[in-house]
Simulated scan of single mutants.
Amino acid sequence: MSNLRVLDPAFSDPFDAAFRRFFAPMHNEDNQPLRMRIDVSENDQGYQVKADLPGVRKEDIHVRVDGNVVRIDAECKSEKETRGEGDKVLRSERYYGSMSRSFSLASDIDDGKVQASYADGVLSLQLPKKAPAAARKITIA
């Protein structure tokens, strides 16, 4: 049995906590896929995207823009775990792996003017809209 207990502050009585866990839906937290949460906003000039990428190094983030489709790929690498002799892991909730997110926008993006920054686990993208092509007058010969 593990020496580590996960406390639920809403239930101070151990019987209530055990009863609640018994009727809670079962799921395996260890095999949950990594999820990238994003916020997208729009104004007249373009789109702003914020993506939560905790634990990811800047070098492991790749952004691609193709017309109006944006794709964000990221890889969270595991840290090498060192244990002393006789030590054992009681609980491990940190994750590693790759995650990807693609989405399309209503307007094409001017990929030459895209700006990206990454700070405190949040990727920020400034995606300016491509100016519509001017209508050309065709002369008939």
Rank of each mutant, 00 (worst) to 15 (best):
A17L: 06
S92T: 07
A18Q: 05
V49A: 01
A135P: 07
P14F: 01
S124Q: 14
S41G: 10
S12Y: 08
G67R: 02
G67W: 00
A131W: 05
D13G: 02
S92V: 09
F103K: 00
D66I: 07
R83V: 11
R20I: 06
P9S: 03
L53G: 00
R83L: 14
I38M: 12
S107H: 11
S102T: 15
N31T: 14
R91K: 12
I38W: 05
R37E: 15
R20Y: 08
D110V: 08
Y95K: 15
Q48S: 13
G55E: 04
I140Q: 11
D66Y: 12
L90W: 08
I61D: 01
V114N: 02
I72L: 02
F22C: 06
V70H: 00
R57C: 08
D87R: 03
S78R: 10
D73I: 02
F11V: 00
V122N: 05
I72Q: 00
A10L: 07
G46R: 01
E85C: 07
L125M: 07
I38L: 14
R35V: 14
D44L: 12
A18I: 07
A24L: 08
R35G: 10
V69Y: 09
G112W: 00
Q115W: 08
T82N: 14
K77E: 02
A17M: 05
S100K: 07
A24G: 07
K50Q: 14
K129M: 04
Y95F: 15
E81Y: 08
F15K: 08
N68R: 04
V122F: 02
P25S: 09
R37H: 14
D111R: 14
Q126Y: 13
P14D: 00
V63Y: 06
P25I: 01
R71A: 14
F23S: 06
R94D: 04
E75V: 02
D60G: 05
E93G: 13
D108H: 10
R71G: 14
M36P: 02
D87S: 08
D52E: 13
Y96L: 13
N28M: 08
N28Y: 06
E29Q: 12
A119F: 12
D108W: 05
V114W: 09
M26I: 15
Q126M: 15
P9N: 04
A131M: 11
K113E: 15
E79I: 10
D44Q: 13
C76M: 14
Y96K: 12
S41C: 09
K80R: 14
A74V: 06
D16R: 02
R37I: 15
R136E: 10
V63Q: 02
S78D: 13
G86V: 03
I138H: 12
L105K: 02
G46A: 06
H62F: 10
D66H: 13
L34K: 07
H27M: 12
T139Y: 15
L34P: 03
D30A: 11
S124V: 11
E42H: 09
G97S: 06
P9W: 00
L123P: 00
V65S: 04
H62S: 12
E79S: 11
D120L: 11
F22R: 09
K129G: 01
D8S: 05
S104W: 15
R71Q: 12
N68T: 08
Y118S: 01
I38R: 07
G46P: 00
K130G: 05
S104D: 15
D8Q: 04
I109S: 01
K129Y: 04
A134F: 13
P128D: 02
S41E: 12
Y47I: 03
R136Y: 09
M99N: 05
